[in-house]
Design a protein around this nucleic acid. Structure first.
Lengths: 231, 231
DNA sequence: CGGACGTTTGAGGAACATCAAAGCCTGTGG
DNA sequence: CCACAGGCTTTGATGTTCCTCAAACGTCCG
């Protein structure tokens, strides 16, 4: 979890305006004058699998825009186990709850190597006071959190385990435009779907035998049509 | 300009400023000058059990502040069944997603007789442009949606049915300060917890026999300590 | 090569869904 | 005031799914 000090030297405004995923990020609607308000540094951070972006209850000073990779937001339970409550991908924000409180609500952990932009909260609040251009994007992000939560509750907590695993695989495969996608560990899949590690393993192993899924290291390809037949 | 106290068309500003749950609602932070911007009428609506506040995909023109009662937000599934994805109570907003889109995301249905304030979306947007006082409350509402969703995923979709029902009863009982609370139908409890109506019924019946729960019509009292022993 | 960790597989049992029927409230109309 | 219909709740019997405990197997890495 290292950051390059070289990044900090060049003009922030220009860096953000030239952002390659500009249309996807929080600052999508800002105009050049808005960018001129950005004085504090926005760091671009590289993270790898297993890194912890931040922990629950930690003092919240930054909101993070996900530029690439896959992250999980996790709640640890009284018995030591954990539940994955959200997956974050390109364009999503991590730690947005920092805008309404002083600490983070989850552990946020990198599943697939990621790059994120670290945006100081003061900067967001400062922009909010000086321009109305951020409001729309922020609202859209909040709404996405809500609709993702609803999706989670209707798609991934209901029906047989087989159906849930299949739906998760289909969801993961459609979230990027490569033909293969990062396949979480069986334990994480369990924590995502509220099933045990063993059940997750059994189902994926069976899908592999039946030709609905092919795996290679931590990546998978699926045959969506075949998968839909199998559950 | 004087206004009659019984005139329903009386000055909106005064009505909202005198609101009995002012500290709980979206407009909590507004100052008198902000209220003067409120030109459009805000209607106070009474609703009873079974009424539909709005439906999924319906054109969204209003955000609703819940003044009293209990509402459910529901997603209907392909097989005709439904899933309750959220409960709304005093101080919550219904239809807030209207701020980032043109239609509602759920069916919102009254469980326990309710009163709600109907706020036109234009009014919120207009206030947002003219004052920064609404921003904080709106952000707090979005954050609550997120934290409620996380609560749902960790408390109500995990563990044995018995545990989930007990947690739901405890949750419902602590949400108001009366000693009894509205107990949803067994079908709704099933749709809340992703279990069948029969299982919900069996568990509540057993809790009743063992003295953890007492019911009367649609209301219940619980013995929290005893309930915690039972699962 | 050996150890650690994640995955797979197995056997057995508990929990829950399903199908089905009976019981119980509540409101309605005779 | 009582009888009855309809809807919700409760209960039962049965079968399936999934969890639990346990062990073997792979794979990656030092």
């Amino acid at each position: 979890m290292t950051t390059s000090p070289i990044d900090l030297t060049c003009n922030q405004s220009e860096k953000c305006q030239r952002c390659s995923i500009r249309q996807l990020v929080l600052f999508a609607d800002l105009c050049p004058e808005d960018f001129d308000l950005l004085q504090l540094p926005i760091e671009n951070i590289k993270l790898q699998t297993g890194d912890v972006l931040y922990k629950e209850k930690q003092a919240a000073k930054y909101v993070y825009t996900i530029r690439s990779g896959l992250l999980k937001q996790v709640r640890y339970l009284a018995d030591g186990s954990y539940r994955v409550v959200r997956l974050l991908q390109q364009g999503d924000l991590a730690g947005i709850e920092a805008l309404a409180g002083s600490s983070y609500m989850h552990h946020t952990i990198i599943l697939q190597d990621a790059t994120v932009c670290q945006i100081p909260i003061e900067k967001i609040e400062q922009l909010n006071e000086n321009t109305s251009h951020l409001y729309k994007q922020l609202t859209a992000r909040w709404k996405k959190i809500q609709s993702d939560a609803d999706l989670w509750l209707t798609e991934f907590t209901l029906g047989s385990s087989k159906k849930r695993v299949a739906k998760l695989l289909i969801y993961l495969s459609t979230q990027n435009n490569h033909d293969s996608f990062y396949l979480p560990s069986r334990e994480d899949i369990g924590a995502l779907l509220a099933i045990t590690t063993e059940t997750a393993s059994r189902i994926i192993a069976e899908f592999k035998r039946q030709g609905g899924v092919q795996t290679q290291r931590h990546y998978a390809k699926i045959d969506i049509a075949k998968l839909k037949q199998l559950y």
